[in-house]
């Protein structure tokens, strides 16, 4: 595995990175690196996740596979449920708000969840605007399919980026596509001439100062995690090898036959992603994975990743 370009602290070069508030937001994301964040819908699942070795849990009403199956409007989880989850575990608790739904985000901040995921998995509340995340002292993570999308979210104040992948599919192909795309686009920026960067910013539809920053540093200014379709330990090792710094697992754990065992196995594979022997150990005796859906068979209108921009 090649060496990774890692952050020097504090981040410099751009005013927003130097505020204590933004540094604290990125600081928590740093603590989660090398770990697995697991979707949970109640306190008992949260305890199983913590025991399995999760670094954080994501509280939501239904896991993405059920949202996909049952349809209807997917909203922020119930307050009671989230309170129970927060009381049950000592690790950080994240929760999802709908894209653009800053009032849900206000509620989640008041509830003191540790990270807010402005997520395409829920039904978008605003098709034009994402949340102004700088307005919140609470940190936000947002999904992205490519570098431009990642930088637009960072410009809005996201302190952590995750690939969107295709949530609830159990098919890792989209998470791979998105991580490869982001990594490739960053590499490309490091080799183009300075005089071409404004054109790159135009093509990426991202702020020039962030494009210049990535061109200079060769990485995102905030941690870059992977999500969307990861269902096995090998899936987790794959996205880590492609440059993810941590992994979100949604339906993959609690839609499998043995969530405790699979959760622990995915944690192990994330830590030892480049060690074939440890990976083999992590894949033994897991029981059945979530059934999954081949993303190629999904109609364009069934995709979650196209929500947001």
């Amino acid at each position: 595995m090649g060496t990774r370009s890692v952050a020097a602290f504090p981040l410099d070069g751009i005013d927003m990175f130097l505020t204590n508030e933004f540094r604290l937001k990125v600081g928590l994301a740093e603590q989660l690196k090398g770990g697995v964040i697991m979707d949970v819908t109640d306190a008992s699942q949260a305890c199983i996740a913590q025991e399995a070795g999760a670094v954080a849990v994501m509280a939501l009403e239904r896991v993405p596979a059920d949202i996909r199956k049952d349809g209807g409007v997917a909203r922020m989880a119930s307050i009671q449920r989230m309170r129970e989850i927060m009381a049950a575990v000592s690790i950080p608790v994240m929760a999802k708000a709908r894209i653009g739904h800053f009032a849900e985000a206000m509620v989640l901040q008041a509830l003191k969840v540790d990270y807010i995921d402005e997520s395409e998995v829920l039904t978008p509340a605003d098709e034009e605007f994402h949340i102004d995340k700088h307005a919140f002292p609470a940190p936000f993570v947002c999904g992205a399919r490519n570098l431009g999308e990642a930088l637009r979210r960072i410009a809005e104040g996201a302190a952590m980026i995750r690939t969107k992948g295709e949530a609830g599919s159990g098919d890792v192909v989209e998470a791979v596509r998105h991580m490869r795309t982001i990594q490739r686009q960053m590499k490309q920026l490091t080799v183009v001439g300075r005089d071409e960067l404004s054109g790159c910013a135009k093509d990426l539809q991202a702020p020039l100062e962030l494009v210049e920053w990535v061109a200079r540093e060769g990485r995102l200014p905030v941690p870059n995690f992977s999500a969307g379709g990861i269902a096995t330990p090998a899936d987790a090792a794959l996205v880590m090898s492609l440059g993810a710094e941590a992994v979100f697992v949604g339906s993959g754990i609690f839609k499998s036959e043995d969530p405790a065992r699979r959760g622990a196995a995915i944690v192990k594979a994330t830590t030892f992603f480049s060690d074939p022997e440890k990976l083999l150990e992590s894949c033994e005796d897991l029981g059945k994975p979530m059934p999954g859906i081949d993303v190629a068979t999904l109609d364009e209108s069934e995709l979650l990743q196209t929500r947001g921009w």
Partner: peptide, 25 residues
């Protein structure tokens, strides 16, 4: 110790100060 956490930030600082760094797993 590099099982999980902000080990990379520590590694960068140690390297800046001239130490040879081993990420321990």
């Amino acid at each position: 110790l590099a099982l999980q956490g902000d080990f990379a930030a520590h590694s960068v600082r140690l390297a800046e100060l001239g130490a040879e760094v081993v990420e321990v797993r």
